[in-house]
Design a protein around this nucleic acid. Structure first.
Length: 459
DNA sequence: TCTGGGGTCCTAGGACCC
DNA sequence: TCTGGGGTCCTAGGACCC
């Protein structure tokens, strides 16, 4: 038996913990650059605001309905997530953290009333962190996901499902008739693994509800669609096909990409952005003890504007796999300079690290180069230990004092420590605006991770 | 004026190997 | 007239997830 524990409207709930006055108002959290809504309170959903709705299309609700929009505060959400996850882990033996607000818990072998156990866990998470959750239980992960959807919907829309399924729904304990009823009342596109494309194809084939989908022949589904959908159908039938993954393998690629706050034209500004992105990607790389053998860099104009379009990417191989920030930034900048064309209004850039491998397994090299270069090669290997130490120091400082405390100069000091921006730097006059920096006009404090932004309680 | 970011898996087809 | 069988690796594209 699996449980899926999911934070309700997670980002909004994190904000509400520290601003209870938001509890009664429609609230959305916006994506980077305050671009579009990525989390909505129930009140915002009731206004008809869709997931991903561009801000400029919904901002009229500010005036008409008191909608509150906040810039995404991932430092806060990540920290609140860790608190929630560590509590939820106590629900069973093994936990798979599936996303920032969701985790699967293996409940097999746990005796007693599982629903009661889950209700108590819900109360504990709410009491200790302030975060409301919903819990779905089922014999497969897909059914647990479905149960979670029902638990949320039953609470939000009374009458849609039996009232006792609100907040915690146990499909493994439902009678066949109850299960059939619930599946008939739920659209197939709500199922985990059924996206908009497949949902349309299913509808064309007369498959509307979860029950319709569950009753299909798995072999036929495989022939007409794919093994993926076949697995989904079997899971709906109660046959577990997707195992709990409590130790996810290291990532196969690591990316850091951003849209800019405003269009960017000059190369030097793109260089700052790409340096920053590559540095961040390298940091993530070291966290999982990997090295990258290739660095991909891309730049593009906005597809939403009438500007002349331009989008290029380039894959830069490294002479040897590395997780050294300097090495990775140099490769990314080399790539950037090769694809940059002046005159375009760039809207986005990014760095991706691919061809990743375990840093602890280093491939030796056969010395085929001319004798004169031996000394260089030996020195390079000897200095490797020094560079590893430097990277460790970099990571330690940035972890302790906050991201961006120590950076490469080519990332542009302006965006980081303002005290260093007292004079001209690298030929750029002080006070020069950086168009690539994110727009975040509705930032909330990092209540739980920065001592100077901690909330103050008054008696 | 204004439209996010970061991942995974599967399949088909081509090149290549013995 | 007649032209095998079995495999790997890589890439691009499509679909999905939150």
């Amino acid at each position: 038996m699996y449980a899926l524990v999911d934070g309700n409207n997670f980002y909004v709930s994190c904000e509400r913990v520290f601003r209870p006055s938001l509890n009664v108002r429609p609230v959305v959290v916006l994506s980077n650059n305050d671009g579009c809504a990525i989390a909505r309170s129930n009140e915002a959903k009731a206004l008809g605001i869709a997931m991903g709705a561009p801000w400029f299309k919904i901002r009229h609700f500010e005036e008409s309905h008191g909608l509150v929009a906040l810039s995404a505060n991932f430092a806060l959400y990540g920290d609140m997530s860790q608190r929630m996850m560590s509590l939820v882990a106590g629900l069973g033996h093994r936990q798979e953290v599936y996303s920032i607000d969701e985790s699967f818990v293996d409940l097999s072998g746990i005796r007693g009333d599982l629903v009661d156990r889950c209700r108590r866990m819900r109360a504990r998470v709410l009491g200790w962190t302030g975060l409301p959750t919903s819990i779905g239980l089922g014999p497969t992960k897909t059914l647990a996901k479905l149960a979670n959807h029902i638990a949320k919907t039953a609470e939000r829309k009374p009458g849609s499902y039996p009232e006792y399924w609100a907040q915690v729904c146990h499909l493994g304990a439902a009678s066949p008739a109850e299960l059939a009823q619930a599946m008939s009342a739920t659209e197939a596109r709500e199922v985990w693994g059924v996206g908009p494309r497949i949902a349309r194809q299913l509808a064309d084939a007369g498959v509307q509800t979860v029950r319709d989908l569950q009753q299909l022949d798995p072999a036929a589904v495989r022939r007409r669609w794919s093994v993926m959908l076949e697995r989904t159908v079997r899971e709906l039938q109660g046959v577990s096909c997707i195992a709990l993954d409590d130790a996810p393998p290291p990532k196969q690629q690591i990316a850091c990409t951003r849209s800019f706050g405003h269009p960017v034209l000059p190369l030097w500004e793109l260089e700052e952005a790409v340096t920053t992105f590559a540095s961040r990607a390298a940091e993530k790389l070291r966290q999982q003890h990997s090295c990258a053998a290739q660095v991909l860099c891309f730049i593009r104009t906005s597809p939403f504007r009438d500007d002349p379009p331009y989008a290029r990417s380039v894959l830069v191989p490294l002479s040897r796999p590395s997780h050294d920030t300097v090495c990775i930034v140099q490769a990314a900048l080399l790539g950037l300079r090769s694809i940059y064309r002046s005159g375009y209004r760039y809207a986005k850039a990014g760095v991706m690290l691919v061809d990743l491998r375990d840093a602890r397994i280093a491939q030796g090299e056969l010395a085929l180069w001319p004798h004169a270069e031996d000394a260089w090669a030996i020195e390079a290997q000897r200095s490797q230990g020094v560079r590893d130490g430097l990277m460790q120091a970099l990571d330690t400082l940035n972890r302790r004092y906050g991201r961006g405390t120590v950076v490469l100069a080519s990332s542009g000091v302006v965006s980081h420590a303002s005290s260093l921006n007292a004079q001209n730097f690298m030929g750029i006059p002080k006070g020069t605006p950086r168009h690539w920096l994110m727009k975040q006009e509705r930032k909330t404090p990092r209540y739980t991770t920065r001592i100077d932004e901690i909330p103050v309680a008054r008696a």
